[in-house]
Structure formats: structure tokens, C-alpha cells
């Protein structure tokens, strides 16, 4: 059974349609990449998938349970125990140190005694390479560390599905590659599924099992899907001009030369 099934999704804000007719499935254990240029609706689509924004049209099911539409509140609440989310900014709670951030979901949703919660949170921080930073506040760490800590928090309850919004944005190439390796390790060792929003080409090719490419001009009046499939296949075979422009982009230095 697919871990996510989305059909006919659309989002309108007033008179403006961000995208429409977006349908896709994400298989269990897959790294699924949402990609596209700025303003095409990637982050809006992710907000729909995690239940922060009810779609104007369409349906979303997670692990077979419909989480949109009337009466879906309990299913959404149950689904939220089965996925974790890393926001673009990390969204760590500033008043808690990193250990406290990772312990919060354990405190709220498990009956573990405090020492066990602390041990489990420490293990999650160690898993993302932050064992030595457990006592530091979010304001005292770098952007890359904040993103890794956010992944540790999202992993606290061992969910089978993780949503990552722009995990590589603003990071140096080495730290971005470390994050990509972490994603692949989690997929391979635990079978965790990922939905990753990004437009970092290197990252897409390194981690993506499947992808969905959105474009703001897919329809005359709205954005939507222009391509779907494994990223390497799209890179090699797609003839869509936007897809070609995306995968064939060359560094400015090369253009200048």
C-alpha cells in the first residue's frame, strides 16, 4: 500500500490558483522529491500533505486513511503520530535546549519515565551527529545543526514517514551532502519514507527515488505537475522545456566562459 495517495489536489487563495490537478502516490520506503522553481507551490503542497492547509480540492490519504475533507480530524490526528516534519527554518523551540526539543514529543505521547526519554532523545541526537550539542540552545548552533536537530526531533517517535522542507537550503555543499547521506541511511536502515521539498539539483539526483516536478505555468491559469518519475530518468529523457532547463542548468562561470 502506498504511504501517501494524493488525488486532484488544488489550492486557491482568493482569485489566484496556485496549482490544480496534482495527483501522485509515494511508495513506502521511497525518497519522493517535490521539485520546481520558486513560487510553483512546493511548500504549499507540503503544507497540504502535513495537514496545515486544507486543500481547496482533492483528497490526501496517509497509510490508507483519508486526512482531508469533512470528518477527517481524528484520522489526521492519528496520522500525525506516524509522520515527522522538518521545516525549512528548523522551527526548534527557542526556550528548550536540543535535548529538550527532542524530548518534547516523547513527553507528550509516551509514558516513558524521564531518564528513558532523555536516553532515547540523546540517541536520536547521536544518530544525526549532535551528541555533543544536546545542552545547547537553538540560538547557539549553526543552520546545519538546527536542521539536523529538527530531523532528530521529527524522528523521536520513530515515524515511518518524514517530510523535509528544503533540507539543503542555505547550507554549504559538505553539510548538504551530510544531510543527504543521513536521509539515505535512514531510508536503507529503517525503511523510512521521505517527502523532500527541494530545488537543489545535486541533492535531487543523490537521494530521489521518484520525483514530481511542479511549474507555475503548467496550466494557462494555474501551476501544476509537468513531470513525474525517477529524477535520473527525467534528466536523461524528458523533453519538456522547463524540465530540460532545470536539469541542464549550467553554472554562471561556464556560461561566461
Amino acid at each position: 500500500m502506498p504511504i501517501i495517495e494524493a488525488s486532484g489536489l488544488a489550492q486557491r487563495f482568493g482569485d489566484r490558483t496556485i496549482f490544480r490537478d496534482v495527483s501522485f502516490t509515494v511508495a513506502a520506503g521511497q525518497v519522493f522529491v517535490l521539485l520546481g522553481g520558486s513560487g510553483c507551490g512546493k511548500s504549499t503542497l507540503m503544507r497540504q500533505l502535513v495537514g496545515l492547509l486544507p486543500p481547496t480540492e482533492g483528497e490526501i490519504a496517509i497509510a490508507g486513511a483519508r486526512i482531508t475533507g469533512p470528518g477527517a480530524g481524528p484520522a489526521l490526528a492519528a496520522a500525525r503520530r506516524r509522520f515527522g516534519v522538518m521545516f525549512q527554518s528548523g522551527a526548534l523551540f527557542g526556550s528548550l535546549d536540543l535535548l529538550g526539543n527532542v524530548m518534547l514529543p516523547l513527553e507528550m505521547f509516551t509514558d516513558l519515565p524521564r531518564p528513558d526519554r532523555a536516553a532515547r532523545a540523546s540517541a536520536k541526537l547521536a544518530e544525526v551527529g549532535l551528541a555533543d550539542a544536546a545542552g545547547r540552545l537553538p540560538a547557539e548552533i549553526s543552520g546545519g545543526m538546527a536542521k539536523r536537530a529538527a530531523i532528530a526531533r521529527a524522528l523521536a517517535l520513530d515515524p515511518p514517514l518524514l517530510f523535509l522542507d528544503e533540507p539543503s537550503a542555505g547550507l554549504d555543499p559538505i553539510t548538504a551532502a551530510e544531510l543527504d547521506r543521513l536521509i539515505l541511511t535512514l531510508r536503507d536502515r529503517r525503511g523510512t519514507s521521505f517527502v523532500v521539498v527541494t530545488h537543489e539539483l545535486a541533492s535531487i539526483l543523490a537521494i530521489g527515488d521518484a520525483c514530481l516536478m511542479l511549474d507555475r505555468n503548467a496550466w494557462p491559469d494555474a501551476g501544476g505537475v509537468i513531470a513525474a518519475g525517477p529524477p535520473r530518468v527525467l534528466k536523461a529523457e524528458s523533453r519538456h522545456p522547463v524540465v530540460r532547463a532545470f536539469f541542464d542548468r549550467t553554472p554562471l562561470a561556464a556560461e561566461a566562459a
Binding site: V50, G51, L52, A77, R80, R81, F83, V85, F87, Q88, S89, A91, L92, F93, G94, L104, P105, M108, F109
Partner: peptide
């Protein structure tokens, strides 16, 4: 307000809090 701007409120909501 700062928590909202930093998406911390969204983080709470998606954690089911």
C-alpha cells in the same frame, strides 16, 4: 509572534499539539 514567524507554531501543530 516570533514563534509563529519561526514556524514553531506549525511545528507544534504537526506534532499533534
Amino acid at each position: 509572534g516570533t514563534m509563529k514567524v519561526n514556524q514553531e507554531l506549525d511545528a507544534l501543530e504537526v506534532m499533534g499539539l
